[in-house]
């Protein structure tokens, strides 16, 4: 494996770890449920996507085995993240979860 590929894989790994951590920090410290929903759906998804890409590149570069399961995992995560976020938002609206004081607008429940 050349140095450039190694460098690329390392950068992808670190980016993935940092974004997963940012998603978790968002989950831990943002003020209410609806704002907390943003961290995991975006930051964590792209973090794990980046790690999956790094894994794919590592195995393709190390022993030239082009197994596409990592890419499948990545695509699957990107497809399911907005759906589970949507389901959770609907459940939260039904349960009338509290919003922070400075939220404009109202959630509706039908």
């Amino acid at each position: 494996m050349t140095l450039a590929i190694e460098l690329g894989i390392s950068i992808l790994l670190i980016i993935g770890g940092v974004f997963a951590l940012i998603g978790a920090i968002g989950l831990a410290r943002l003020p209410d449920f609806y704002t907390r929903l943003h961290g995991p759906t975006k930051a964590t998804t792209i973090g794990v996507g980046s790690i999956a890409l790094a894994s794919f590149a590592y195995f393709a570069g190390a022993n030239a085995s082009y197994d596409l399961i990592e890419l499948l995992i990545m695509v699957f995560l990107f497809m399911t993240a907005p759906i589970s976020a949507n389901f959770l938002a609907k459940a939260a609206m039904h349960l009338k979860v509290k919003t922070t004081d400075n939220t404009r607008g109202q959630p509706w429940d039908q």
């Binding site: 943002l30 975006k42 400075n102 404009r104």
Partner: peptide, 26 residues
């Protein structure tokens, strides 16, 4: 845009001083 999105979320999460201004929009 997804990549830009995570950067925006990162900035929001890591800016400890400013309170975000959430809103429900129809």
């Amino acid at each position: 845009d997804i990549i830009i999105a995570s950067l925006t979320v990162a900035r929001l999460v890591l800016s400890f001083r400013r309170k975000p201004q959430p809103a429900f929009v129809c």
